[in-house]
Design a binder for these strands. Structure first.
Lengths: 224, 224
DNA sequence: TGGTCATGTGACCGACAAGTCATACGACTG
DNA sequence: CAGTCGTATGACTTGTCGGTCACATGACCA
């Protein structure tokens, strides 16, 4: 957690520092991110940095808090299409709404994703915990989906959770990576072609490669 | 490519250097791998290193050559279950045989996979090319599978290729990660439980999460 | 006015990195 | 024998890193 000094800062200055940190992690990942560059790019002195944060991990954890809070805030205003939705419909809504969120702050999302999904794999407990938490949520979803008969009882829950987690990440990443090169990422994400891509991927996850009921003519019709 | 000096080295010494490099990349990835540590661990001097290789990338490329060659060699002695096999049967054979190969030299495989799949994503052309090549191969497989009617014509080939590539990597990685902690990785990979895990994952890829025909009672019976 | 307290600063430190180079060694050769 | 060629060496240069610290600044108060 950042020190009090940082939280006392005027909003604008604090935001400048945060932005510099986001840029740094998004471009270099965690290991290669340089505090020297962060201070240079945010126009504060080295000494100040260490009066704001303990160290590199401290800034990064702060960014994780920021994104978690923003995401909660964002999802608070959204509602799943219909309660009691099938797991697949719900998952599709999650992914699509998640992508809407991602396009509101793509750099931050990219920075976090990059660190968590690449280096995080080899970086011990801190990040492993975060990933475990999402897995547990998924396992919960799958268990109730099994009870509804949407997913066959013979399927190993962990395997299924891994499948869904993998897809979620793959879809997010590829959308984000490509979208960040467009001039208007929000518009691009909402474009039919992009939405179809997401639908296709999820359809394959649901029905398999062998026999895909593609063409996204499934159960949910409109977004808000 | 390494310089001639390196190729002139006695086998044993050359292998020592290669092993030190593999260990380094497997443990630290590419960016954080240290030439200083490699030379320390291989008992050669800094000067010698630069008489063997141009730089860090040069050693790594050499390792990629080594693995490519070893893999070709390994697969030369193997034959797909039956020619004209379904794409899914063939893919399963590929994955399983690939895992057999991986367990012959897990450290090397891990080193390469780590760099290619994590940092490689953000590392410009060099690694992108390698990944593109596998994608192209997969697209080719999918095209002929479409003609056989095994995969629906409406499926986007690139999407499908991405699906298969993702699966291949996820399976390899999770098997490797867990297997390297066992005392006898070869034995562990061949164990029924591990094989079932692979089958389950592939079955989900083939038939989807919604309605899995799991329990690995498919078409191929034995490995040699 | 002088004191104190939060904040800001950048020179400085030791560690480590990549890469260079003068020097040395030993085998072979004329 | 002297010469030279391939190889080996590690001290050295240059650069960046994370982190510290003595000091400066300025707002507030007694």
């Amino acid at each position: 957690m950042p020190k009090q000094t940082f939280l006392n800062l005027p909003d604008e200055k604090r935001q400048t520092v945060v932005n510099a940190a986001i840029d740094e992690f998004a471009e270099y990942g965690f290991e290669s991110a340089s505090i020297n560059r962060i201070v240079a790019n945010s126009g504060i002195s080295k000494g100040s940095f260490y009066q704001y944060f303990e160290d590199k991990m401290d800034v990064f954890k702060y960014l994780m808090d920021v994104i978690a809070q923003e995401k909660t805030e964002f999802f608070k205003g959204k509602h799943p299409p219909s309660p009691g939705q099938s797991i697949f419909g719900y998952f599709r809504w999650m992914i699509k709404t998640g992508m809407e969120f991602n396009s509101t702050n793509p750099k931050l999302v990219k920075a976090i994703a990059r660190v968590l999904l690449s280096e995080g794999m080899y970086y011990g407990q801190i990040f492993a915990d975060v990933r475990k938490k999402t897995m547990d949520t998924l396992v919960g979803m799958i268990q109730s989906a099994k009870q509804n008969g949407e997913i066959d009882a013979s399927v190993d829950e962990k395997v299924a959770a891994k499948v869904m987690d993998t897809w979620s990440n793959v879809i997010s990443n590829s959308i984000l990576e490509e979208g960040m090169q467009k001039k208007d990422i929000v518009k691009w994400v909402r474009a039919p072609k992009t939405q179809k891509y997401i639908d296709d991927m999820l359809s394959i996850m649901e029905h398999g490669l062998r026999n895909v009921k593609a063409s996204s003519s499934d159960d949910d019709g409109k977004e808000e």
